[in-house]
Amino acid sequence: MTVHEDGTSEGASVVLEYLTIDVIVNDYAMIVAGKFLSPIGQFRQNLHPSWINKLPSAPPGFGHGGAAPVSETGVQLRGGLTSSINYAVYVGNGPEMDIEVENEDGETEELEVHDVENEAFGNDLNNSKTLGGRIGWLPLPKIEIGASFMVGEADAEFEMESGGEHQEQMESADITVYGIDVVVPFRNFVFRGEYIKQELDSFEVGELKTLDTEWETFYLQGSYRFGGQPWELVLRYGDFDSPHMDDDQEQWAFGVNYLIQENAQVKIAYESNKNDDKTSLADRDQTIIQLAYGF
């Protein structure tokens, strides 16, 4: 929830992040049904809570409109096959497309996919389910390497103009997401990295055709906890490429954390952000101070 400078929260929304029913099937499988965090990659499902995330922000491309899916509505099977192999596989409603329509003289001149909304939807416009999952492997007890995927269709409802009349339109496009992630703790250091790519195929409406589009992001992060001290240093590099130059972002982030307790900390971070368009919000550097507490 956001509170503005004048103390009001107009336009803010309260969102239920996830709500699931979990059923233990046996020692190796659990069924999760409802709205759940996407198991694609590591950041969203395991690292994004503020008391876990070493920096006050998500890496570029791991938020709304990014390359990495955020959440999903559906059914998931997950668990550990052994102490060194874990997995998650799900079927869900899938994402929706945010379509920009350009009308002129009562005719639709251009269609463009602005972004893919990868947040859980309670309904499925085209009744075509997406399939996704992740497998994690621990070659050594503390080191984990993961590979993720999602395939299916993204759908959208939008209005077009033809002959001066509005027409409701529903379209779908094939979507593929894949990613890898790794975490390597070593003494007081923790190194982690994640790469995710999302590909959306074009679709046609009459004579209009959208383009094949791709969203791609990765980050590398290193953190160091001073032995026996409540201080922590963090450095992260991230690079997000989207079909829209305004959204691209290359980022260096540096943070210092003071741990009041293991689950409560004060974080101060500086982000150096770069976008080729100097007027873009994605080009603004920022300093963030955050008080984080988690259960």
């Binding site: 233990i24 020692d27 997950r78 668990g79 550990g80 102490s83 998650a88 293991e262």
Partner: peptide
Amino acid sequence: NLRVATEFSDNQWRAITFHMRLRAGFTG
């Protein structure tokens, strides 16, 4: 960060470990 055993009661640890089983993909 590591959460020490003394932070929670027996019943709380039961709920927490089963939540973490789901999150981290532990076996039973």
